[in-house]
Structures are given as C-alpha cells and as structure tokens.
Design a protein around this nucleic acid. Structure first.
Length: 268
DNA sequence: TTCCAGGACCGGG
DNA sequence: CCCGGTCATGGA
C-alpha cells in the first residue's frame, strides 16, 4: 500500500545523505529504499511531503516514528532564527530531520565512523551487512545482531577493512550480547547517564556516544563534536553555543554540519 | 609522498 | 587533567 505523509520540513536527500545514517539507497526514479530492524521501506519525495510504500498501516506508523513525525521542525527552526549563522544553516537545510534509528546498528555504525570518512564508513557497513546480515530481498540485508557479531573473530571481520576499529566492534557486540550493556535501558536514562553508560564500551568516547544518543535515542541535548563542528564552534561560537539552541542542540548541530560540509567541495 | 577523515586510547608530563 | 603520538585504510 501507499501512504501519503504530508509534512513540510522533509527533504529525503538532505536527511538520508546527511551522514546520520549510512544504508539508504537512492533508486533510478529518485526514491529511496531502506531497512531498520526487519522493516523495509520505499519512500519517494513529494513537494508537500513523501509517499511511503509499505505492507500495512502498522508499518507506516513504524516509519513515521522513524522519521520523527512528532517533532515540529518548523517551530524549532523559528526558535533558531535568533542566531544569524544558525538561521542561515537551518533555512538552507530545513528538510533535515533527526531519525530514530535502531540502537545497536547506530552504535556499531558510529564506532566505525571514528577517524574515517563517510564514503568509507558506508562501504564498511555495507560489507558488514552483506557478509553477516540476513538477506531479506535482493540487495537488502538486515544489520547483523549482537549475538552474530559476538561469535566472530578479528579474522572473520578482516574483509571489511575496518582497520583498528575491529576490536571496538567486537567489544561492543560482546558487551551487548552478554547483557553487560543493555541498550534498551538507555531509553530511560538522562543524557548524562546514557553518555557515561555508552562510554563503558571500548572505542566509544564523547563523540560516538553523542551520535548514538542523538540518532538512535533522540536525545536532542547531545551536540556531537566532530572535526567539522569543532572548526565551526571555534570560529562562530568561541564564547559558547547560542541560547536559542535550547534543548535542541543536536538538531542545530545537524544543520550546521551540513551547511559547512557542503561548502567544502572535496568531500561533497 | 603527505595529509586527512562524523575519534579513542594510552603514556608521559 | 592535558597533551601528542598512534592506531588501519583509502582517496585526494
């Protein structure tokens, strides 16, 4: 069935190619196909929103939540307009939304992201899923679960060419699989608690933890500080982040990240 | 050849 | 606590 979602502040290209997710594929007709857990979606842009191709109403609801349908982005952007730089960044990227992604996939993805670039991150994650995920449809694989990855050796993961990150991936999978780290429990934690909890995993520091808290748990207080954001804050916000970011620092971060990244031609 | 990428870890000061 | 070196990999 097709579900028409009418909303402003949704641009699929801006959202799905913004570096918060790495598995969406653009098709010939401009639509995108993606998977989260065992849910599959084809979604196509419309001027007034998007068309979701799904199997049921229930699936439609799952995906609306994934695309964070309950957050009023127009209101957030209006709030941000008090700061000139942020206003420009937000207006140019007003179609970005913060996705609610599956926690384990997000954790492993951002462990892989460290000291790495987006095209190579995408490649490593793609090989991980094709090698150890479950094939659901042609070209579509699930993200391998913690139990599956925990059973692997560094030699098994060598073909991914993930380099020094392999032992971090294995530590994360082992801790989640053993129950030492309970990803579900983070839902009920504060931002600070969740951050310290995630950092008990080897290879998870401030930045990776913030990405997981923002892109999986939608804790919008998180402001992931990567090399791009550090340059931006050093130049524009040396005395601190503007008040108007409020409880939505993470959304502001994503507007700023895209705004400035776009201005460096080499990285696209 | 050198530098850099959605960083984290480790050792020395 | 803070600092610099180091960690694989591949594209520019």
């Amino acid at each position: 069935m097709e579900y028409i979602w009418k909303t402003d502040c949704l641009d699929l290209a801006q959202t799905l190619e913004s570096g918060q997710c790495f598995r969406w594929k653009r098709q010939e007709d401009g639509s995108y196909t993606g998977i989260s857990g065992s849910h599959i979606l084809r979604i196509k842009q419309r001027p007034d929103g998007a068309v979701l191709t799904v199997r049921s109403e229930e699936e439609a609801r799952f995906w609306l939540r994934y695309f964070d349908c309950d957050t009023d982005y127009a209101a957030v952007i209006k709030q941000f307009s008090a700061d000139k730089t942020l206003r420009e960044a937000a207006e140019e990227n007003r179609g970005i939304r913060i996705l609610r992604q599956e926690p384990f996939e997000t954790l492993i993805s951002f462990i892989i992201s460290q000291n790495n670039n987006i095209p190579r991150i995408t490649g490593i994650i793609g090989r991980l899923c094709e090698s150890f995920g479950e094939r659901i449809d042609d070209g579509i694989f699930t993200f391998p679960d913690a139990r599956t990855i925990a059973a692997l050796t560094p030699e098994d993961l060598a073909p991914l060419r993930a380099g020094f990150r392999v032992r971090y991936i294995l530590d994360a999978a082992n801790k989640v699989n053993s129950g030492e780290v309970d990803l579900q429990s983070i839902c009920d934690m504060s931002y600070d608690e969740g951050r310290e909890y995630l950092k008990t995993i080897t290879g998870v520091g401030d930045k990776v933890a913030d990405c997981v808290l923002l892109f999986a748990y939608h804790k919008t207080e998180a402001f992931p500080a990567d090399v791009w954001i550090k340059r931006i804050t050093a130049e524009y916000y040396a005395d601190g982040l503007p008040e108007c970011m409020g409880e939505y620092k993470g959304i502001a971060q994503q507007y700023l990240f895209e705004y400035f990244r776009k201005r460096v031609p080499a990285v696209k």
